[in-house]
Design a protein around this nucleic acid. Structure first.
Lengths: 333, 333
DNA sequence: CTGTTAGCGCCTTCAG
DNA sequence: CTGAAGGCGCTAACAG
C-alpha cells in the first residue's frame, strides 16, 4: 500500500527516472510521445511526487510562512485572507506561525529560518530583529506588512499618522471641537506602532486647528472591545465630556459605541465615533471609519513574495508600498 | 554560508553522525559527557536540523493540516485558535488549507493526502468523501469537527438539534409565543448542517409546546450579517411580527439586532434575540446565546490528533466527543 | 555506548 | 533526447 515512487513510474513507462523527472518538471527536452507514456503511467499508478524528497533535493520547501501575533484580531484575519487567496492559486502551502510573546517571536523566527522550513516569510505587524533573519539566511525572501521600521525588506504599509489626521480632521470638519481618543496599549511588547502613530496624527490635526489635546479624554488600554468600552464609559461620564471620539481601530470603536448605547447617548447626534481599518463588521454596524484595504494588503504581500520567489529577486521599484487610506462615510459621525 | 549539516557537527564534536542524531532525538543511549560535546558543537555552529531531510528519512512531515472553508468566519477563527494554541506547543507546524468550493475540497484533499504533505488532518465543518482519504492513505490520522456524518474518523461535535431546542425553549420560557428563525443557506454546497439541524430543534420545541412554526417568520439567506439584517428587516415589518427571533449563529444575530435598531425596536422588550455559538464579540454586544465552546473544540481536536500521532493509534473511547451546550444569559432576551 | 553504512524519493549532472 | 549515477541531510539498523 506504499505510495508509488518515481522509480515505479519509470519502470511502468519503460523509461528512466530522469525522464520521469523531466516530464514532472515540464522540461521541454522530452519527446511528446515519451511524455505521453510517462503521463499515462503516472495516471495509472496514481502517482504524485513526494514533497519532502523534492524539497531535500531541490532545496525548496514549497512553503510560505506567515508570522503574526493574535491572528484572531479581525485586521489580521482579513490580511491573512488576502494572503491565503493568492497562495491558494500557487504551488505554495501556507504555514501559520502565531506567536504569543516577543520572546517567542525571536526564538520561532530562529528555528523557522535556520531549519529552512519555508521558502519565504510574510511578517504581519511585528517588530523583529531583521539581523537575525539576515544572519541566519541572508537570501530568504521576506515581505513585511505594517511595520515602518523595516529597512532590509520590502514592506507594505499605510501612513498611520496621516490616517490619524484624516480621521480627526473629518470630525473637526463636522463641527467637533471636543474630541477624545481611545487606543490600544501605547507601548506593547510586540512593538505594534499603529496606535501611537495614529495618536500623533490626532494631535497634529487638533493643534493645526488650534484645538487642544485633552489628556482626560485620551485612553490607551488593553486590547479589545471591552477595555475600550470601559474607557469610553469613564470618559463619557466626565463632567465635561467630548462630543466625538476617534478610536484607533474598529474593534475599539465598537466598544465606544457600546458604551454610548449604555449611557443612552445617541450616535452621532450626542456622540460621534470614527474608527480605523474598515474591517468587515464595520460595514454592518455602520461605522464611519478610515479604510486601509486590509485584504488587498495581504494579497499584495503574497504577490510580491511569489514574484520574488519566481524571479529570484524583486524589482527594487516594488520595494515599498503605501496603501491608500480613505474615509468611509457611514452613520456614526 | 551554507547551513551546517549533521556531518559538520559530528566532525566538530569528534564523533560520528549517528551519535549526533541520537542526541538530537534524545535517545537515552548517549553518555552525558558525549552529549555535552555534541550539544556544544551544535551551539557553536548554530546548527539546526534540516526539516526536509528529516521528513524524507523519517517518513514524517511534522506538519498538521487544517482544512476549512471560509476561515474568516468567527466560529472558524475561534476553533482555529484553539488548534493553534495546542500545536504551537508541539513540534508540528500548522498548514492552512482553505477551500472555496466543494470541488476544490475534493481535489485539494487528494493532493494533500497523496503527496504526503501532512502527518495528520483536522477537518472543520466540511462534508467530504471519507473514502477518498481512506483509499489514498488508509492510515492517515484525521480528526473531524462539526460533521455528524463522519463514520470512519473520530469527531467532535455538538448536538445542534438539542441546541436549537434549548434556544427556542428559552424564548418560550420567557413568554414568547411568536418566534422567528433566521439561518444560513439551508442547502449549501459545502454541506454545512448546523442551520438545518438547529432549525429542526427550533420546530420541535415549538411543536412540543403546541405552538406553530410560521413560515413567514423563517428565513434562510446568504451567509453573513447583512443578509440576516435584510431578512430581519422584512420579517419585523410584517403586519404580524414575531416577538422573538432565534438566529442560527451569532453573526446572524448581530444582523437581527442591527435591524431591530433600525426599526426602533427595543431589545429585549420589543424584540428578544438569541444567537448560537457564543463567539467572542457576543459578549461585547451582550448577546444572549447558546455557547458551544468553540476554542475548546479546536483544542480537543488538536489534542486527539497529537495523541494519535504519538501512540500510533487512538483509544476508541476517545472516538466521539460531544461538546456541551449551554445558554449564556445576557441582555437580549 | 558509539561509528559506519544504507537507504528515504527526487533532481541534476554526465555520458551516450 | 534519454538512461545511469551521485548526492541532498538525516535516521535507523548493524557492527563493534
Amino acid at each position: 500500500m506504499k505510495s508509488p515512487t518515481i522509480r515505479d513510474v519509470a519502470k511502468r513507462a519503460g523509461v528512466g527516472v530522469g525522464t520521469v523527472s523531466r516530464v514532472l518538471n515540464e522540461s521541454p527536452h522530452v519527446r511528446a510521445e515519451t511524455r505521453e507514456k510517462v503521463l499515462m503511467a503516472i495516471k495509472e499508478l496514481n502517482y504524485s511526487p513526494n514533497t519532502a524528497a523534492r524539497q531535500l533535493s531541490g532545496g525548496k520547501t514549497l512553503t510560505i510562512g506567515v508570522v503574526t501575533a493574535f491572528f484572531t484580531f479581525p485586521s489580521f484575519v482579513e490580511r491573512l485572507t488576502g494572503i491565503q487567496e493568492i497562495l491558494e492559486k500557487s504551488e505554495y502551502d501556507l504555514v501559520l506561525y502565531s506567536i504569543r510573546s516577543i520572546q517567542h517571536l525571536h526564538q520561532q523566527l530562529q528555528t523557522v529560518v535556520s531549519q529552512n522550513r519555508v521558502d519565504g516569510l510574510i511578517i504581519l505587524s511585528l517588530r523583529f530583529a531583521q539581523e537575525d533573519i539576515k544572519n541566519l539566511n541572508p537570501t530568504l525572501p521576506v515581505v513585511v506588512i505594517d511595520n515602518e521600521s523595516v529597512q532590509h525588506y520590502p514592506h507594505i504599509m499605510a501612513d498611520n499618522i496621516e490616517g490619524g489626521r484624516l480621521a480627526t480632521s473629518y470630525l473637526i470638519d463636522h463641527g467637533h471641537e471636543h474630541i477624545g481618543f481611545i487606543g490600544d496599549p501605547a507601548n506593547d511588547s510586540f512593538g505594534f506602532t499603529s496606535t501611537p502613530l495614529r495618536f500623533d496624527g490626532f494631535c497634529m490635526a487638533l493643534e493645526q486647528t488650534g484645538l487642544e489635546v485633552n489628556d482626560d479624554w485620551c485612553a490607551f488600554g488593553q486590547y479589545g472591545q471591552e477595555a475600550a468600552r470601559q474607557h469610553a464609559l469613564h470618559i463619557l461620564s466626565l463632567p465635561q465630556r467630548p462630543t466625538a471620539i476617534f478610536a484607533a481601530n474598529d474593534t475599539l470603536a465598537f466598544g465606544v459605541l457600546s458604551a454610548a448605547h449604555d449611557l443612552g447617548l445617541r450616535v452621532p447626534s450626542d456622540l460621534a465615533v470614527i474608527g480605523f481599518d474598515d474591517i468587515q463588521s464595520a460595514a454592518y454596524l455602520r461605522l464611519t471609519t478610515v479604510r486601509q484595504h486590509l485584504i488587498e494588503s495581504g494579497q499584495l504581500a503574497a504577490r510580491l513574495l511569489l514574484e520574488w520567489l519566481q524571479h529570484g529577486s524583486l524589482n527594487p521599484d516594488r520595494w515599498e508600498h503605501e496603501m491608500p487610506l480613505e474615509i468611509v462615510e457611514r452613520s456614526t459621525v
